[in-house]
Design a binder for these strands. Structure first.
Lengths: 213, 213
DNA sequence: GCATGAAATGAGAGTAACTCTCAAAAGATG
DNA sequence: CATCTTTTGAGAGTTACTCTCATTTCATGC
């Protein structure tokens, strides 16, 4: 579940200077809240699950829930993977075509998510499809990722990251990938999401394929 | 072409059977609510404007406001132009490249909006930029338009409207156009929005331009 | 260990956007 | 004008979220 598998090293003196009890507790409550939410949403659905119920099952007060997550949707959407993955995108070799970098990172993300917590990944996609508020929040965070993407594109192509063209291109890719996600959820997660994402990127890169006959 | 050109015919028994007092009143309330909202938002900002204030200034009850608009954001976003414009898109000649159709309709929409009610158009774009909830709602409605667009694309190209490629392409165009709108608002509406939209469509059609040297 | 300071928590009150219900008012219709 | 239908207003209820303040819980120097 956790990104850092090397957390247990007993004699690593400098790099991770040990968490400290406070930090550890915070991580635990965070996970308790998320866990409670996923469980309740699975049982009753998203809308019927109230913050109060979540707080109760996570054994914290409602106030605390809002201290950890700004909105109810964030509890469901947030993810520990996002940041390291974005870092990885930035760290890809500069001469690699950036669409390939995106493909690489997406494949990695999908592999990670679908092996570590497949149910939650699918539940999340389903919520995105069915609950407008969740969908909206997801789009908003994706927009943020789009800005990072625009920077990456600009860095690789030498174009202005704040220029209209780069921004439009980045956001169109985001829009396309999100649609691929919806498609995936709509079809019951039957196809490999990484493949769908690949096809989506193809469309962005090369336009629509020719119609059959 | 225009929806209401034949409205005044005194002896047309079937097609438009005359508005009726009830309908006229409904339109008036609708406009009263919208007008009150725009005024109040202009004075105090979006977040500080409550439904109660809107209701009071529009001289209706809060209940009525919610009967006319499902959410507060919808009051600001909704528009009488959307439907006829979409109809016009569908009515464009079938042999016209569909991107040209989109360009045409957008140009027309911009011309209409910027001559009939420029302040409101700019206010709306600014709200979209500044108020997350408005932005979210706008994206949601644009997604709906994206579906219509996907149908149009499929009709012109012979591809499957429910296939991944067409859907991704349509949504990427939507995403790109929305980013162009944000760009427009961010830059103080100084550039011609129709031109920005054109450039955005260019990016979707042909990809990024080459970097200068 | 223990005192002191800082951070996290819980409790409670408050706001505002919605939702639902039901009775009164107003337009349509014969 | 009487009746039927649609629209409206009033009011109560829900829930996500905000703010404040007192209490608890951890960290730190002695």
């Amino acid at each position: 579940m956790n990104v850092m598998t090397a957390a247990r090293s007993p004699l690593a003196p400098d790099a991770p200077p040990r968490p400290g009890l406070r930090e550890r507790k915070k991580i635990k409550t965070r996970e308790a809240i998320r866990g409670a939410t996923y469980a309740l949403v699975g049982e009753q659905g998203y809308d019927s699950t109230t913050i109060e119920q979540i707080a109760e099952r996570a054994e914290v007060s409602p106030s605390t829930v809002f201290r950890y997550f700004p909105t109810k949707e964030d509890i469901v959407i947030t993810d520990e993977y996002d940041e390291p993955l974005l870092a990885e995108l930035a760290a890809r070799p500069a001469d690699e075509p950036w669409t390939d970098s995106v493909r690489y990172v997406i494949r990695k993300a999908v592999r990670l998510a679908m092996t570590e917590q497949p149910e939650i990944t699918e539940l999340r996609a389903r919520l995105m499809l069915e609950v407008p508020a969740v969908r909206a929040r997801m789009r908003e965070t994706l927009t943020g990722i789009g800005r990072t993407l625009a920077d990456a594109i600009a860095g690789r192509t030498g174009l202005d990251p704040d220029g209209l063209e780069v921004r439009v291109h980045a956001m169109s890719l985001i829009g396309g990938l999100l649609e691929a996600t919806m498609y995936w959820a709509e079809h019951g997660h039957r196809e490999d999401y990484a493949d769908l994402a690949d096809r989506a990127i193809d469309v962005i890169e090369h336009g629509l394929p020719a119609a059959k006959s």
